[in-house]
């Protein structure tokens, strides 16, 4: 029963090779989905390209349902699957700062790595920025420790917080995702038609 490495079914000595292979697949999927282009990524914030939303939501609910199924079929022990503890203040502060970094920089760390791999110089600079940012944080850590450890909620699960079973939560998540897919498709068509009408075809093609 999985997870295989924590349960000693695959020897931990193989784990770096596994990491490398998983990384290759991760990079292949992201690059072929268009995540190596910052213009394409930020399209969801301006309505001209919702690729990120489609890939992200589809991946999240496939993995969410998959985890539930594998646990039900006793293939994977869900209690051994790691997820981080919640520190509410820190999660909000971090998300807000990352949101600004995302729309200003055009990448997130994963997409930045993939974009750098095909030669995007702005992505390489973005990664250098992340490096500097982490360094600044580590130097200032004593000053922000209260925020970092603020409002601890322990190993909190969102479905439990909402008083829903895991299955019901996953079902609602899919429902919201499908509605988002339909609505954003409509927005995308409208925005691109508007751009085309304004003769800004270069943006509409969402590079």
């Amino acid at each position: 029963m999985g997870p295989l490495i924590p349960n000693g079914i695959i020897d931990a000595g193989w784990s770096y090779l596994v990491a490398f292979i998983i990384g290759i697949a991760f990079g292949l999927i992201m690059e072929s989905s268009g995540f190596s282009s910052s213009k394409k990524i930020v399209g969801l914030f301006y309505g001209y390209d919702f690729t990120v939303l489609r890939v992200f939501f589809t991946a999240a609910f496939i993995a969410m349902f998959g985890l539930l199924y594998l646990n039900y079929a006793e293939i994977l022990d869900l209690s051994m699957v790691y997820f981080p503890e919640t520190f509410l203040t820190s999660a909000i502060v971090g998300g807000v700062i990352m949101g600004i970094g995302f729309i200003v920089g055009g990448y997130c760390p994963g997409t930045g790595i993939v974009a750098a791999s095909i030669g995007k110089i702005d992505a390489i600079v973005f990664l250098i920025g992340i490096f500097i940012g982490i360094f600044i944080f580590s130097e200032l850590f004593p000053l922000v420790k209260d925020i970092y450890f603020g409002n601890p909620m322990g190993k909190s699960r969102f479905n439990e917080l909402l008083g829903l079973s895991r299955g019901m939560f996953a079902f609602l998540f899919v429902l919201i995702a499908v509605i988002a897919f339909i609505v954003t498709r409509t927005i995308e068509i409208r925005v691109n038609n508007k751009y085309a009408a304004e003769n800004h075809g270069d943006q509409a093609s969402a590079e």
Binding site: A91, M98, G101, I103, P109, G129, I132, G133, I136
Partner: peptide, 13 residues
């Protein structure tokens, strides 16, 4: 953007 993301990702764990 990278600097902000680097800092934010620490708070966000």
């Amino acid at each position: 953007g990278g600097i902000l993301f680097g800092i934010g990702a620490q708070f966000g764990r």
